[in-house]
Design a binder for these strands. Structure first.
Lengths: 210, 210
DNA sequence: CGAGTTGGATAGTGAGAGTATCCAACTAGG
DNA sequence: CCTAGTTGGATACTCTCACTATCCAACTCG
């Protein structure tokens, strides 16, 4: 497959493909001469993954590139690679670790994770992310109680362990594992979000509409 | 409160506050003279809401401004206002209604909503949003079965009706109702997402780590 | 053999979210 | 009362991001 065919098959314009190649999101094709390279199904698949992460997940190109780099570093053990991928999915976050409110929220998050006996890296950025949301909720006058947080956490754990993790082929090739993890996190995550909004609309119609 | 105090209290720089005033995200303060205006707690609260929607929800300023406009249009009935707010929360979406795959996915979404007997507007952009995600999942080789979709939908509905909707004061002032709805949708939505990622990390550590 | 593609390099674009600068009109402290 | 400092409002500028556009020399296919 040449670049023009890859473009036609994926719907991504050639200059954009070249841009992804430059940024390292897409591996180089196999050079057949100084001005010709051959692309395969793996490239098409990768391209679809990139578009899904960009358009559905709104991930910045830089994060996608980190994920790709972790996949391609053969030295890196699988669980570390998954961690790298996972953390690249976190929101940027604005670092304000100095104020007291934030510190208390972070404490609540750590306690929650301890009590649930979850295995989450002590420095995982996800912890900070959750703490920030708790602070905002407080400031906006809709605080989340420890009790409901635990409830929601249980729910999510059931969802993840019963339905999502089973689909990830941890024993297959490393690329496949991250790909599944990332797709699971981003696309299923978005799907849940949309379903939640649909449920909300339906409920508020039921309550309010004539 | 003058603008400099509003800025100090919220942590938002003065030029940014001026920008929000220009864009109509923040209502004008009460003019006390040609070059002086007074801001109150409502402004501070609104400012925090704006920052939460921007930084946590990643909503574009234009969407926030639509929500605000709906709140401030006294003519608009409450359920329509909530709808406007709700649809402003949807992802932009790229409109490709021509291809067959997409059409089939849309059909699946409509069927799902029918079978669940949810009250969702037939033209709700949320339907398209979900259809697009289904298409991507298919293309990426991780299709979501009707069965699991129904399962997830049930779960979300329980979450929403048992825990979220109860907190929204539909009978109070209109501003409060949308505010709660929006905070609920965006911030709780993000909180669930983060909890899901934490659960995922914990599960993959359990499976993979020595 | 010549029109058309390709890879690679470099530069330009457009949207989005702020920032910076000016200015005239106040207002508050001395 | 007078002057240094803020304010509101208008206008213009900046920065980042994700692309696009243009060039060019080297091929390749008909």
């Amino acid at each position: 497959m040449r670049i023009s065919q890859l473009s036609a098959a994926s719907g991504v314009p050639i200059p954009t493909i070249k841009y992804y190649l430059r940024e390292g999101l897409l591996p180089q094709g196999e050079q057949t001469s100084a001005t010709r390279a051959e692309y395969g199904d793996a490239h098409l698949r990768r391209l679809r993954l990139i578009r899904a992460l960009l358009e559905v997940g709104r991930l910045p190109v830089a994060s996608i590139s980190k994920i790709v780099a972790a996949v391609e570093d053969e030295e890196m053990p699988v669980h570390e690679m998954l961690g790298t991928a996972h953390y690249a999915l976190a929101s940027p976050g604005e670092s304000r670790p100095d104020d007291e409110e934030h510190h208390a929220a972070r404490e609540r998050v750590d306690t929650l994770i301890d009590e649930l006996e979850w295995s989450v890296h002590p420095e995982a950025p996800t912890r900070e992310e959750l703490a920030q949301i708790l602070v905002r909720l407080d400031q906006l006058g809709m605080p989340a109680s420890d009790q409901s947080m635990r409830h929601y956490a249980d729910l999510m754990m059931r969802l993840v362990s019963e339905h999502e993790m089973g689909k990830i082929p941890f024993d297959g090739p490393r690329e496949t594992a991250v790909e599944s993890l990332v797709i699971g996190t981003v696309l299923y995550g978005k799907a849940f979000d949309v379903l939640r909004r649909l449920a909300q609309e339906s409920e508020s119609a039921r309550i309010l509409d004539p």
